[in-house]
Design a protein around this nucleic acid. Sequence first.
DNA 1: TTGATATACGGAACACCGTTCCGTATATTT
DNA 2: AAATATACGGAACGGTGTTCCGTATATCAA
Lengths: 182, 182
Amino acid sequence: MRADAKKNYDHLLSIAQKALLEQGADVSMRDIARQADVGVGTLYRHFPTREALLDALLRSSFDDLAGKANELNGAAETDKALLVWLEEVIAFTHAHRGILEPMMSAIEDPASALHESCVRLKTAGASLLRRAQADGTARPDLDGAELFDLIAALAWLREQPAHAQRAARLFNVVAGAVLKAP
Amino acid sequence: MRADAKKNYDHLLSIAQKALLEQGADVSMRDIARQADVGVGTLYRHFPTREALLDALLRSSFDDLAGKANELNGAAETDKALLVWLEEVIAFTHAHRGILEPMMSAIEDPASALHESCVRLKTAGASLLRRAQADGTARPDLDGAELFDLIAALAWLREQPAHAQRAARLFNVVAGAVLKAP
DNA sequence: TTGATATACGGAACACCGTTCCGTATATTT
DNA sequence: AAATATACGGAACGGTGTTCCGTATATCAA
């Protein structure tokens, strides 16, 4: 990779990161290029599609979340572990408004650049769920995919501006349906 | 209203109805105009905004759903009544892919053309919920707005193509959290 | 029936979008 | 310094929602 290319790549990543946090995942590619003082062609050279850019932005965070699940798998009570992790995932998606839709399409489309990252997240949640189920603290008739759906639904709700207040209560309602002991 | 205008209005409504069912609520305004063999200006003359068009398309159905809630308020067991109505609302939104997002913005924006219709829906659900709560069949710590959110979240899940299979199970999980006796 | 007028129509135009393409510029290598 | 590989910028394409206005037509009066 040429030196100027590497510089632009890094610069674009950091600008895009900021734009993602400030304007949401539906920020226009042109906007990102503009804010980075770069032609739109340069942006597309480095990130051939919007999903590729999102993947570059989210991959490490997703890995962090998956890692957190592994930590929690060792330490805390099984039900509390699941709860804490759910809250963290939802807080993350809340901080990155608009990433839910690309995530939902990616999770079922192996060709998507985001696919792998999403599957890792789903798998991490599934392992926490299994442990809680083995422990008898989570209802047994749920699988990882369904848990992922429930997380996504809660995350989607929290994305709706006016519903932020109710989000915490609804989280408890749904979590109460997943876990046996409230 | 001039005769030709009335004719175009009715024609546009029926074409838009078909387009809404076949292509979803994000069908382009140009597409609707094209399918109706009408200039895009004509479409906008009759429906000054996309939400106005949606309102014209959905209002009567929403009224039907609200009416259904009133019927159910009279007849069936309170928990079953709520359940049946929830399923009907979700089935309706499922048949009209894409209406959820405009509904969610409309419910909190009194200026929206869709606002009134959405509030009617929310109110209808709230009355069913209250009756079930008074009867002791629904958990008491929920209000109409929260129920509406839960319905929306479930409806959103059912809109995700690959998740249709899990939708029924997840409906039961969430419904089980709202109702006391499964 | 003809003429005036109010109303409605069609579609070009504007500003945006994601994405592609290619002539030009620059970094690297010889 | 020349050759070459690589990267850059931004015009261009086909799409979007929406606005605007010159033209056509329905309606009403004479």
